[in-house]
């Protein structure tokens, strides 16, 4: 048997044992195995390894696991910002918010490019400056990871 042929067959052995080969590939592997001791030995070793792995015990949760989750879930439900973001993340609300934001942005741009619009800009800046404390709101910053979650969830939908 050529080493190259054996290498190719051996790369198929795990899928063969997992019953994940197409019929033609499976027959090819079986035909080779019937006349190759080296690949048959590799198959036996892989089979043994897979049996040892499947015998590994799984870790079970502790007795307090459910209770701890129920408490965490309650905390999750009572965090107002989380509830607000969950509401905002609903598809209809998201579309509505996007439309409203675009509309407001357009109005702002139209006003800003008008001659003598300095007053408008200044007024806007003053409005922002007057609410600077909102930007340093700890709760808002602390929960920014929710936005990451939202991106993550959207990505999940794309993957599915």
């Amino acid at each position: 048997m050529s080493a190259k042929k054996c290498e190719k067959i051996q790369s198929e052995l795990v899928a063969y044992l997992d019953d994940e080969l197409e019929e033609t590939q499976r027959k090819l592997v079986e035909s080779h195995l019937s006349e190759c001791d080296s690949c048959s030995m590799a198959l036996a070793q892989l089979k043994q390894t897979m049996m040892q792995v499947s015998a590994l015990p799984a870790t079970a949760p502790s007795d307090e696991f459910l209770l701890r989750f129920e408490k965490r879930l309650e905390k999750e439900k009572t965090t107002p910002l989380r509830a607000l973001v969950a509401w905002l993340a609903r598809p209809r609300v998201l579309v509505g918010t996007a439309v409203a934001t675009t509309f407001l942005l357009l109005i702002f741009l139209v006003l800003a490019i008008r001659p003598g619009s300095t007053a408008v800009t200044n007024t806007s800046e003053m409005a922002v400056a007057g609410h600077l404390d909102l930007f340093s709101d700890y709760e808002a910053i602390k929960n920014l990871d929710i936005l990451e979650d939202m991106e993550f969830i959207e990505a999940l939908d794309e993957d599915a």
């Binding site: 696991f65 999750e76 969830i153 999940l156 939908d157």
Partner: peptide, 14 residues
């Protein structure tokens, strides 16, 4: 496991 299910909870509406 708790974190995973909290993510499921947050994503439930979508």
């Amino acid at each position: 496991a708790q974190e995973i299910f909290i993510k499921v909870y947050r994503a439930r509406r979508s």
